[in-house]
């Protein structure tokens, strides 16, 4: 293809996304209005960071000079929250190495918010309110043929406990699935397909070891954490934040050890974050919601490229 044909192809592709871009613009306005009305402070924390939170299954992309591109703004946001003791939110880019598929881009936008004196179930109510508000704000896009706004966010959301789901839909319990390294596969292939189509599904009672930063429920021994799914697509992950300094340090150490054994990069620990916990992080709840996926869910897109002007594979370059 010659240069002008390439440019024409790009223009045609970008113009085909114009409705999706308008919807994205409308969505970010709605999100910001929502949080402003609920007395949240919008914050921006560094994108290049020195100490990404240690998580067993999250790998970061390296930036220059010993920095990493943030996989999430979580630690900085909680450091801010501890100092300000007020609700904060952030909408901005996050990065995950080697994650690419119809629902994944290595660079994406995350909407995160944290609220003092809240637990993950308070956050769930707020999330329902937010997403329903966003859904109404995008009502005008229902008429557009390019989209298939089919998910019913206004009705009741299904809330399912994972231990119960394992018992009901599989022959193994969640702990043995974890031991046999089958948890994710069973979740995707056996449990998620059971969910009602076009209806939001909230999974709760996750195994504690999958996450380094959620509080342990003293009764169940599971994480105080839930995730939101629609038609098999994960939209959000929320928890009651772990605020105990000693337990947090111990969990980071455990995760570091696991990553070291697996021969994976072991990121340094954010000492400011641990110090924040030692001096006292208020009890709080927080959530990370995939902004691009929220847009996909609201518009009824099933491939992230339908809303992405510049997917990484299209960025061909040459030296001059």
């Amino acid at each position: 293809m010659n240069e002008s044909a390439k440019r024409e192809t790009e223009i045609a592709r970008l113009r085909s996304l114009s409705k999706a871009l308008e919807a994205r613009h409308q969505l970010s306005r709605t999100v910001r209005d929502f949080f402003r009305q609920h007395s949240y402070l919008e914050v921006n924390t560094p994108v290049q960071i020195k100490a990404p939170a240690l998580e067993e299954h999250i790998d970061c992309s390296a930036a220059a000079h010993g920095y990493w591109l943030r996989p999430s703004p979580e630690l900085h946001m909680k450091r801010l929250l501890a100092a300000l003791n007020r609700p904060i939110f952030q909408l901005g880019p996050c990065f995950r190495a080697e994650e690419r598929g119809s629902l994944h881009l290595p660079e994406f936008h995350m909407l995160e918010w944290y609220r003092p004196e809240a637990d993950c179930m308070d956050i769930l109510e707020e999330t329902k309110f937010l997403i329903r508000t966003c859904d109404q704000a995008l009502e005008g896009f229902t008429e557009d043929k390019a989209f298939n706004r089919k998910i019913d966010f206004s009705g009741e959301w299904m809330v399912v406990n994972l231990d119960t789901a394992f018992a009901e839909y599989t022959e193994m319990d969640m702990d043995s699935a974890m031991e046999q390294n089958l948890f994710e596969q069973v979740l995707v292939e056996r449990i998620l397909p059971q969910a009602e189509k076009n209806r939001p599904l909230v999974l709760c009672g996750f195994p504690l070891t999958l996450d380094s930063l959620a509080r342990k429920n003293p009764d169940s021994g599971r994480a105080e954490r839930w995730e939101l799914y629609v038609n098999g697509m994960e939209l959000a992950n929320a928890y009651t934040e772990l605020t105990d300094y000693h337990e947090q340090k111990h969990r980071f150490q455990q995760t570091a050890e696991i990553r070291r054994r697996q021969g994976r990069e072991v990121y340094p620990v954010d000492v400011h974050y641990l110090e924040t916990l030692r001096c006292g992080l208020p009890e709080c709840g927080g959530i990370a919601l995939g902004f691009d996926r929220l847009l996909m869910a609201l518009l009824g897109c099933d491939n992230i490229e339908q809303i992405t002007p510049f997917p990484p594979e299209k960025e061909t370059v040459e030296f001059i």
Binding site: E55, E56, H57, I58, E98, E99, R100, G101, S102, L103, H104, N181, F183, E184, Q185, L187, V188, L192, L203, F206, L210, D211, E227, E234, N237
Partner: peptide, 14 residues
Amino acid sequence: FEFCKPGKGQALYR
């Protein structure tokens, strides 16, 4: 080919 990574767990390549 479908990439997924549910629940902060390990990546699956279906």
